[in-house]
Simulated assay, not measured.
Amino acid sequence: MTLRRWAALLPAIMLGTLFGTTVTPKQALAEFEIQESEVEKGETEVEYRGAVHWGFPGAEREEAEEDEEEGEGGGALDEEEEGEFVRQSHDIELQYGITERWLISTALSADEPLDEDFDVSSVEIELQYELIEREGNGIGLAFIGAYGFATRGGEADEIEFGPIVELGSGPLLLTTNTFFTSQVGDHRETDGLGFEYGWRAEYKVASRWGVGVEMFGEIEDLSNAGSFDDQAHSIGPTLFYNPGGEDDDIGGEGDDDDDEIGGPPELEFVFNIGVQFGLTDVTSDTALKFQGGIEF
C-alpha cells in the first residue's frame, strides 16, 4: 500500500478505533500541539502555543447549572447568555537537542478554567528519542516520555508516553502523535490509562508555505467507558509557514547540505495558525489556535 493511501486511510482508522472506546473526560483546554520526530544536536527552540476558545462545553454547562442551583458560581452561565463566553490557554516551551538522538524540553502551561482565574496549570519535563530519522520521502519515528507537575491544588500530576510517527511522500507529510497518559498522586481521578491523539496532514504549496488539516482528541480513562460524544474531539484547517524550507522539502525543514560551511546557527521563525471545530458535546464549539517558534 502506498504512503498516499495510508495518509488517506489513517484518519478513518483512528476514528473507527475511537468509536470503539469510551470514557467521560474532564474537559481540558488543549494547546493543539503536533510534535515532530526530528532531533538535531545543539539546536535550541523556544516555542509558544496558544488558543482562544468559544462555546460552552455541555459537560461544564451541567456542572455550572448545578453550582448555580446550590448558590455557587453562575458567572460563566451569565457570560454565555450574553455571548461573551471566551477562554484562553497558553504554553511556553524550551527544548534542546542534547545529542543526535535525544531531545529534552520543559513547558509551562496556563489556562482559564470555568469560573476560575487565569493561572499556571502545570509544568512539564519531557525526553524524546529519535529512533528512525526521516530524510525526505519515508518514515520517521520517535518516542517521548514526560512528567507533568500540577500547580493547582487538588489536581493530579500526569505521566505521558508514546510514539511520534511521520510519513513523507512528495509534497505530503502526515504526522501522528498517539500518547498514553496516567494520573499519579493523591488527587488522581482515573482508574487506568488515558489516551491522547493528534494527527496532521500537511501539503506543501510553496517553498515556505503549507496547508493542511489537524485533528485532536482525548480519552481520559480507557477503563471507564463512555460514548464518542462524551469524549473531546476537534478538527480543522491549518496554515503553515517555515522559512527554512527548500523547494524539495516536505512540509517542514530541509535536510542539511553536506557541503555547507560550519558556522553559528541561523535564527529562524516558524509558525502555524488554524481553527478547530468541536465535534462533541464536551468540546469547545470553536478554537483559534496559534503556534510559533524561534529556532537557533
Rank of each mutant, 00 (worst) to 15 (best):
F118T: 09
T99Y: 10
S109M: 03
V270E: 08
A150H: 04
Y203Q: 10
G50T: 12
I144V: 11
Q276T: 07
E60P: 00
G73Y: 13
W199K: 00
T21P: 00
E155G: 02
A232Y: 01
K41F: 04
D281F: 05
N272W: 14
R49E: 05
E38W: 04
D186I: 01
E126F: 06
G50L: 10
G244M: 03
D191M: 01
F228P: 03
D157A: 07
A64C: 01
D111Q: 02
L131T: 10
G58L: 13
P171Q: 12
E220W: 14
F180W: 15
G16Q: 09
Y48I: 13
G97E: 08
D115C: 06
P163H: 12
E72K: 15
N272Q: 15
E166T: 04
E135W: 00
G42P: 02
G226K: 08
H90I: 08
F296A: 10
E69D: 08
G168H: 03
G192E: 05
I125G: 08
V282L: 04
Q27F: 12
V123E: 00
T280I: 09
H233G: 03
I139C: 03
Q27G: 03
E189N: 09
G217L: 06
T178Q: 01
V165S: 03
D229Q: 10
D186R: 11
K26V: 10
I132A: 05
P113C: 08
Q276D: 10
E133N: 12
N224T: 15
G262F: 09
E36F: 05
A232S: 10
A146Y: 08
